[in-house]
Design a binder for these strands. Structure first.
Lengths: 229, 229, 229, 229
DNA sequence: AATGAATGAGGGTTCATTCAT
DNA sequence: TATGAATGAACCCTCATTCAT
């Protein structure tokens, strides 16, 4: 977890005390809340259990955050920030267009695989029609930089004549995300209705391969009249 | 609602009796519960409000269903049954392969557009790792017939040389569903992070067009060596 | 207590069952709440203790009343109604003017003596600047009939030449109430600052005698020029 | 505020030290607590808000006072002391008997008008049956000097033949206080039940005039046989 | 002396469920 | 069969007080 990096520097003057460290406590609470919200959704989460996870008393939650709602906002901001910082670690400029797309798909997918909390948190927020995210300044337009970089990658591919024209970047990005997200989010019901164990070993990798092929075939589909449209 | 059509005909052979009222009451409750669960998710739903929606007392709920959980199972079964009956109304055999795929994509997507409850209900169930659906006999393998028919459609396309080889039917179907489902389910948070109003007029149609192109380009991508694998 | 008269009639058809009697339960709750609020004030009162006093579970309070506030409104309405019904039992017309005033003073004072809850309840409400009473329709102008009757009594005395002119009825009534209310309300601190035990036997009667003399001397103070003003 | 005048003079003999700051901090806390208790009563008051009012941290409160209760005792002592010092500023000896009574009534009443906190504080303490005042040495018998001086005033009036005999000084003083206190304390509920705005401009002065007349008419009521009793 | 983070008992309120009628 | 009063565990949150720093 990102938070764990705190106080790693050996030159830190203060002793590594566990108590009375406000910033550290804030992070401990957000981490505990993330887990609880991720396991149970917003309505299913219990402030009592969040407190237990922190190892502190319940009152502390309200010392740092005013309400369950405010805490949920903080958790959402934290995890979106984390996702963005992971996205920024991916330098698409270094890749050839097709390889760049492969990287982006895999990178995005793997974030969800490694952070299953993200999916539950975001589903919860959509159930509530984004009422918490609306209150957050830090999340609005957060994905603009990434979609810009995706646009540049597509442009390079188009200039090289290997990618099709007429690509709506945001629709494309939603597809890239959705193809993995939906699978990971809905594995349980899908396993029942298709009678195929999508939680089994190998299922995740298989999905990634399929997704990648789907998106690349779409992009590579250069038609003679593309330049004319 | 689909359920309301049941048993309306006056020429029904059976005598009018209590059985029938009981069946009708069951449906009224399921309908009320579907709405409540759809608006609030499982944990956010309130049995009081379900009772109010039925116009009957709360005790009736417990007379017909033993618990909130059992009622949720009934609601899930009901809506999956509804989806299947809609799917069965779609006769893919009548179409040329490509047109058939277009029909299937549009039909599936439109069901979600017209039944937004489905998404919330299914997301809730996935949050709970399918614990209710596991108890249901009627839902298991429910989508086997449809994926079989999709397989036949793909085969026809392959035989005609217009569809690629090596298509995993279930992966493909999950993609067809997921490309629309994810968009419809996550419109609220996506609107925030991309700063684009995905709830605006026209956004739904635009999505369908993109999805259709994506899937068809994948399927049409016939390579010279396809036959050798 | 007034409520206790319920179900006294021998001809009551239904068996005197203790349970499942909504109207009775409402009264039980109001009575319990009156006691709790009277002993502790609004802020000091505990819904838990009210529940214990009713002998029922806490949830019942909220089945009948929506909140502590609403319950307090109901208690205020109930006790003001009780006071008014006691006031209406006092037929001032039957008395000579002076005797009528004596009756009114004693009657009012004795109500407070016998219902010490009234004072705490009303003090609590004044601390909160009447925010609950403002929401009540039944209490507004409740004392208009009584002040009207007091006005008639004064008029009779004035016509007989034994009462002074220029009497503001409401100011007078506030004095009649206040002279007793203040003593009864503030006995504890007054006992300390004057070092006289105002809770001792006989103190209440002594107060009543003093009050009565004070008011009557004021009213009887007929001056030669009263008729000219 | 009265307290602020303390220790302002630069010619103070004692050296400027920590003692003085401590004393000043005590007064700041008492002042803040007085406001908080006055606005919300004892149970409604919050130690957090008192701390905010002082501009200092909550720990300081507990450094100077051991508990909310102890702080309340200090506030009560402070305000009673203030009332007494105001009373002592009133030299009744300078007045003719009737004018002296007028002065006393107006002076007492005006203190309450200008210090509405007093009423809430004292009502709170009576709700708790004087449990805090019992612990205070400084308040016990605090009003003995004043009632002594009132007694002397009455005596002078009796000797001059203008005041009646048989006056219980304490009952009289309670009436003088109560006639104003009750009105000021209960204005909010009285306004509702009489449907007359007692918080309006002019209502306070009207009350004072009525009260004064009431008390003086009682005192002036010299009867022929007064000397014989 | 002063801070403010932390405590924990308990505050008002909610809610799935039961049960007398 | 149907009602809705009653239950009681639990929910989110508050608050006087303590204590490490």
């Amino acid at each position: 977890m990102v938070e764990k990096r705190k106080r790693d520097s050996a030159s830190d003057a203060k002793p590594v005390g566990k108590k009375r460290d406000a910033e550290r406590t804030r992070l401990v609470i957000i981490q505990a809340a993330r887990e609880e919200f991720a396991e149970n959704g917003y309505d299913g989460a219990r402030t009592d259990r969040i407190a237990v996870r922190t190892g502190m008393s319940k009152g502390v939650l309200y010392h740092y955050f005013n309400s369950k709602d405010d805490l949920f906002v903080a958790v959402l901001e934290d995890i979106y920030l984390e996702l963005r910082s992971q996205n920024e670690a991916l330098v698409l400029d270094d890749f050839e267009p097709e390889a760049g797309i492969r990287e982006l798909i895999a990178h995005t997918y793997n974030y969800f695989v490694n952070h299953p909390e993200f999916i539950v948190l975001v589903n919860s927020e959509n159930l509530m029609k984004s009422q918490h995210l609306e209150r957050s300044q830090s999340v609005r337009s957060m994905f603009a930089p990434l979609s810009h970089r995706l646009g540049e990658l597509i442009s390079r591919g188009q200039e090289q004549g290997i990618f099709r024209a007429n690509v709506d970047i945001i629709e494309l990005y939603i597809s890239i995300v959705g193809l993995g997200y939906f699978f990971l989010s809905n594995r349980w019901t899908l396993s029942v209705v298709f009678n195929r164990d999508l939680l089994a070993e190998g299922a995740e990798e298989k999905r990634l391969a399929h997704m990648t092929e789907l998106v690349l075939d779409y992009l590579r589909n250069v038609k003679p009249m593309d330049g004319l449209k």
